[in-house]
Amino acid sequence: MISRVAGCCFWMHRYVERAENLCRLLKVNRSFLLDVPEGVADRWFPLIIVSGEQERFAELHPPAAGDDGELVEAYLTWEERSPVSVITSMRWARENARTTREVISLEMWETLNDLWVDLSRGKARRRYDTDRDTFYKRLRDGCDLFLGLSEQTLLDEEPLDFMRLGMWLERASQTARMLDVKHHTLGPSRADRESPVELAQWSALLYSCSASEAYYKRVPSKPDGRSIAAFLLQDPALPRSVLGCLLRARATLERIRTEGRPELGDEPAALLDGLIDRLRTRDIDTIFGQSIHDELTNAIDTTAAICASIDRAYFDPGDQSALLAAS
């Protein structure tokens, strides 16, 4: 497929996945803060940190604004100047869909367009003001419908593979960011001394990843931070775990390589393999605590490097005359 269009497919799914994750996080953080004792409340700023929006947020708002939950939530949902807010992600998702209309299905387009019309014409804003949980749920449902429709309505071929690739890589990075919220909210964990608040937050993270029920199936004993962290980071069967997402991204990349010119994908494949190996072999007992934050930061940075490498390999290949001469 056309290189540029492959890039649009990749990014379209990244943006939808990103918006969906942010909705999860915002909704769960609200209910988490309602459950914990006072003093811990108003811990909204970690969401700004893990979104990488510290600087911009500080530019746009007064110093103490990070404690204002309303403001943080509005920023991450509606701020058009932020490149990661829900509204920005949805705008770009639709824009990418608009430029790939000849590739995506009518159902996908209509779903995304409906979501956008809803968001941009005030209706959703009123829902946000009056019934916020429903607002996030609707958005999430719409995003999930869109992602599901791409599996249901497209040929199982290259364009869909690039969409999946974008979705898995974005999800891997988003789960890593979610895990990092814990670090920024309550500081480093200690396996031997876990407070009820800490445990509540670990549970909230499970919930954010739709992984509570799966976790109770996996770990029959009393829940604890260490096993939750290991589950969300390393369980290959969990579809939102960091490792699980990376493994699926790797398999998708392999499909793309075998059906095309394998050598084009050598670099991103090597980077992915490296990160997968590293996550697989880390012992949770040694990284739980301070170094889990470093581990997550590494996972996020490496995922970004993988995306950049995919971009060079497939989406923005420069002059291809050399390939022509070679064949």
Binding site: S3, E158, Q320, S321
Partner: peptide, 28 residues
């Protein structure tokens, strides 16, 4: 879409040996 053809932009195309090519994920 309705003609079942590719939709390209100038930057997707290049000319080599007086022939027109589109850059794809599998080469020209």
């Amino acid at each position: 879409r309705r003609m079942g053809s590719m939709l390209v932009q100038g930057s997707d195309l290049f000319v080599h040996d007086d022939r027109l090519y589109v850059k794809t994920t599998k080469g020209p």
